[in-house]
Write a protein that binds this DNA or RNA. Sequence first.
DNA 1: CAGTAATATATGTCTACGCATATATATGCT
DNA 2: AGCATATATATGCGTAGACATATATTACTG
Lengths: 187, 187
Amino acid sequence: MSLNHAILGFLKDKPLTGYELKSVFDMTVRHFWPADQSRIYRALSSLADEGWTEVEVVEQDTRPDRKVYHITDAGRAELHRWLTTPLPGKGQHHAELVQVFFAGQLNDGEILDMLRRMAAMAEAEYNVLSSHPALSGDCPIENTSRSLFFKMLTLHYGIYISNASATWLKETIARIENSEHEKGGKL
Amino acid sequence: MSLNHAILGFLKDKPLTGYELKSVFDMTVRHFWPADQSRIYRALSSLADEGWTEVEVVEQDTRPDRKVYHITDAGRAELHRWLTTPLPGKGQHHAELVQVFFAGQLNDGEILDMLRRMAAMAEAEYNVLSSHPALSGDCPIENTSRSLFFKMLTLHYGIYISNASATWLKETIARIENSEHEKGGKL
DNA sequence: CAGTAATATATGTCTACGCATATATATGCT
DNA sequence: AGCATATATATGCGTAGACATATATTACTG
């Protein structure tokens, strides 16, 4: 399970609590691996059950005790195993494309609303990623320059793909505005 | 739920059985909406429960009776409602990017294996989509030229994105072969 | 003074999805 | 003769994920 292994990946750098992990996920991998708070806590339980992490309970007076998770040797081995194992390439479910696929049933106004909305989403995504703090050297996690290189790669991938997506949508909108779909224009 | 609405989309053209729907899904929307056989049958049950379809049982001697599903007026209304409703933009989970994100923990040989494998997958996807029968005019479902226009759009999107993905991976591989990640090269 | 955000963990529950399996028969291939 | 494939539907089960809610305190902001 990728969530478990992503957590191991973060814990390898530094011991963390569930609460801290939630904000680390949000600051770094949110755009390709959004993680729900409740799932992080449950994943942390299962990692400890399997012996891949150990819990250090830090008592606090005024707040709930912090449970700081440390990766074990077994956890490091499991992380390495997973990182070098090909993933079963599961087809992604892309509900927006289902809407496009059946858009012929709508009138042009409805279709343009749909596509403009999607284009706005793709552009917003592009803008969010393009203004990511890591791009201005403000990196929220500890990194060697080597590990930073690969973390930045995923950000650049997101920028690249959201840009491609937005471009495709804008071109499609332009084609529909020119009524190509009614003139039998070639794709 | 998109599966339910995709089924309604197909049934609007033509009444179909679960078995037929499975092959229609595989021939048309598989690349952005893979549908498990068991899920299709369960979806069909729930569509009938909600009154969006009606079942016509066609008896057969040697095989199980065919249950042909027809869309109802309520079903057509629901389909239109869904097609014109913005989807809650859920972040996709992309496990391969998790592997790239933590790839700094691997050695260069392991990383190149990973990226070459991913590039091969992306290229394979690109090749499959590029040789889709619909591109040579061999279209497996009934279509007006208007509805065909939008169905083709999703195919072109897949080709466009898988190409972008493969290009990004190949460029990344080249950069690592040139050891940019060890020279502190800029991204 | 009241409301909200931050710190911190945890459970309950629903749904979608994936995989396996069950049942039954005809046809075609090797 | 045996095996795979196509036709046809259905249930069982495990897991991941989404969303809500519970608990408890401090610190800030209007």
